[in-house]
């Protein structure tokens, strides 16, 4: 899939490939090829350095973007998956289990939204939109992590909690609320990295954390920009403006003090060089887990409480 703003890059790449093919072993077209390669490099830097918030949302949603499965497979050398909410079913939109991370050898509970790897698994995983049983499985694993003193590591990548009949019948809101409460009192380090989409409550249920990192082109928002444009501007065509207004990019959220760190992506986005992006996340996880490994459980909960208790902007009134 080629995003609209990637088109000039793709055109240059195609022309360079064409010239290489025409030139064959001879050096006749080398000057032209070099010129185009220079132009390509410039175009990449110009385009990717100036992505608008909505363009970043599109990069975050790119189907080739590395997702939970890729991170899990590269970063852990043993992933012992655990399934089910012990009540209704197993939701493949979120996965979790015990994992040993290659970098640092940390034993953790690793969780994430699973957007799938091909059409079939994407559909099976409901494109990373979990049902209540998914959020209840997640809660079970948060509590299991607490019992065994394992850090909770979450890779967030969801358009949001699923909006559907079954989800409502089984208490979607109740399940999310219970996750927020479970994370708030987890007696172990909670580390969340938003690797793609951070859609509203469905994302927040997995990122009330001691450390929240965001890949450069990921986003975190209270509502999808398209829906926001429909509701606030009464025009779904104004999604780009809504994305701008919502301040949903990693850089904006870092500036607002909502997240701790922006993790750089390779030029053009994580889908251009998945291994580089995955390595970046793996390094951050090792560093953060090592930093929190000696933390006292009570102090962790206290600090997490203070962190979320503080966020908000209001003019101070009388406090009496």
């Amino acid at each position: 899939m080629i995003l609209e703003f990637e088109r000039p890059i793709r055109e240059l790449e195609e022309r360079i490939a064409e010239l290489h093919r025409l030139a064959g072993p001879s050096a006749g077209l080398q000057a032209e090829i070099s010129r185009l390669e220079g132009a390509l490099d410039t175009a990449k830097r110009r385009i990717y350095a100036n992505l608008s918030p909505y363009q970043r949302v599109q990069v975050a949603r790119h189907p080739d973007r590395p997702n939970f499965r890729a991170y899990r497979d590269v970063l852990s050398d043993d992933f012992y998956e655990l399934s089910g909410d012990r009540f209704f079913g197993d939701d493949p939109a979120v996965r979790g289990g015990l994992a040993r991370l290659k970098r640092g050898g940390h034993n953790v509970v690793l969780l994430g939204h699973d957007k799938g790897g091909d059409t079939r698994s994407r559909v099976k995983g409901n494109f990373g939109m979990a049902h209540p049983e998914g959020y209840r499985k997640v809660k079970r694993l948060y509590e299991l992590a607490g019992r065994f003193g394992l850090p909770i590591v979450v890779l967030v990548d969801t358009p949001g909690a699923f909006a559907g009949r079954g989800g409502e019948e089984r208490g979607q809101a109740w399940a999310i609320s219970a996750d927020l409460m479970a994370l708030a009192r987890a007696p172990v380090p909670v580390i969340s990295i938003i690797i793609g989409e951070g859609g509203s409550g469905g994302a927040l249920a997995m990122c009330v954390a001691d450390y929240v990192g965001m890949l450069e082109n990921s986003y975190l928002s209270v509502i999808a920009p398209e829906a926001c444009a429909s509701i606030i501007f009464r025009d779904p065509g104004r999604a780009a403006e809504a994305a701008e207004a919502l301040k949903l990019t990693a850089r904006d959220l870092k500036q607002h003090g909502i997240v701790d760190e922006v993790l750089p992506e390779p030029l053009g986005g994580a889908h251009k060089e998945p291994e580089t992006a995955i390595r970046e996340v793996g390094d951050a996880l090792d560093r953060v887990i090592s930093g929190l490994s000696e933390a006292d459980p009570g102090a962790l909960i206290e600090a997490r409480h203070e962190r979320y208790r503080r966020i908000g902007t209001h003019a101070a009134g009388d406090t009496g």
Binding site: G201, L204, V208, L220, S221, L246, Y308, I311
Partner: peptide, 10 residues
Amino acid sequence: GVYSLMQLAK
């Protein structure tokens, strides 16, 4: 925006 989302956590 995200400030309202964070009120769920608060």
